[in-house]
Write a protein that binds this DNA or RNA. Structure first.
Lengths: 227, 227
DNA sequence: CCTACCGATCGGTAGG
DNA sequence: CCTACCGATCGGTAGG
């Protein structure tokens, strides 16, 4: 039955200082009672998890990796999240809420100037590239490429948020279709367009060639026909 | 040091008959000496692995899953492949070779009729959807979505094949660009178009709504402008 | 190709 | 949140 005869010889020490060395001071400081930063530690875990899930994938990232990245011991993430899957879900939910918020803000700015449908689409596409490829953009890629690991229950709550996000796109695409500037079936066009944008996560390199504005211009030129 | 005191109580028996029950007869038949089907067993492993890697992902698929799917014991895949990663690489290589071959054949047929660039692009897109979504299409999705698990050395041999595959697209896209039917920068357009097509793996459902011809028509309408 | 394993690692937990 | 674990599983191997 697999008896454990002795304690592990080298138990769960965070592998000495690989990345982000000076993250926290040496003897990790005891919290004074009125310094509860519960939400903060939770947020730190979510951010570290997003980064690691993005770089290595969900299955290839251990909860020990995540703990080490924020200076915790291996068991401690489970004080904040009841499972690794719950942490994944939190990453995705946070990513979607933030993406929706940014999209809403971008659209508000747009309404103050022109209401040209083509221009609004440009805003939406540019914001999407930002969320996918901009600085700190680990959350949405994780959400796009790791959803297989979700439970069905977790998935529904995210599909809801995705619906909210996409809701802003449909009327614009329909307006462009009516104006003859978007020729394909609107529903399929939306799926194909999202694919074109989302796939950029696989090939875009910040340090090389094109800027996010270049990408936006290319996408518009590709999808939108002359009136 | 973790002593193993007794043999596993339930050692590696393929979990009783879940999928593909009648795969091989009960007492698996001993091979007579002149019935070497080495290549066959290897192919079976590659196909089973493609299916499982596609459905569950590389990390979430165990070599035991794969062995069980072809009626082998847990250690036996390593007689054919020196590692799980080598099996993944074999899946991808097989997928690319087959995709290139199908693309070449499709183009040969096309040349016999019209040489209209738009028509050739339709052939290429339709073939791509076939390879991504048609029957038996597990290989290319695995190659697209699991390449993170490859070693750098394995990756280069595949990038080469991908280059061969894409080589057929570039002159067509350039011709369409010159003719004013493709407005975006050709290099970015190619990446965006591939994204639109490849992403269909995430949402397309054989049993619902659109056919592969519908998808092809929508993609053409989306990307190609009037002359 | 099977038998019989091994060492490593992983998600998670009880108790403080 | 840490300490000190556990049971399960995994990729892989020696020997036939």
């Amino acid at each position: 039955m697999h008896a454990q005869l002795a304690p592990d010889l080298a138990p769960d020490l965070p592998s000495t200082q690989t990345l982000s060395s000076a993250k926290r001071p040496r003897g990790r400081p005891r919290k004074t009672a009125d310094e509860r930063d519960d939400g903060n530690r939770r947020q730190e875990l979510i951010h570290a998890a997003a980064k690691l899930f993005h770089r290595k994938g969900f299955d290839a990232t251990s909860t020990r990796d995540i703990a080490a990245a924020v200076g915790m011991r291996s068991g401690s993430p489970f004080y904040h999240f009841k499972s690794k899957g719950a942490l994944l879900h939190a990453v995705m939910e946070e990513g979607m809420r933030s993406a929706i918020e940014r999209q809403t803000r971008a659209l508000q700015k747009a309404e103050q100037s022109k209401t040209d449908a083509r221009w609004v689409l440009a805003i939406l596409i540019r914001n999407q590239f930002d969320v996918l490829l901009g600085p700190g953009s680990d959350f949405i890629p994780v959400m796009l490429y790791e959803s297989r690991a979700l439970t069905p229950r977790q998935r529904v709550s995210l599909v809801q948020l995705q619906g909210d996000y996409e809701a802003a796109w449909t009327p614009i695409l329909e307006a462009l279709h009516t104006a003859g500037q978007l020729r394909a079936d609107v529903k399929l066009a939306r799926l194909l367009i999202f694919g074109a944008l989302n796939w950029s996560v696989q090939w875009y390199d910040r340090r090389k060639g094109a800027s996010l504005d270049d990408l936006t211009a290319a996408a518009l030129a590709l999808f939108i026909h002359e009136a």
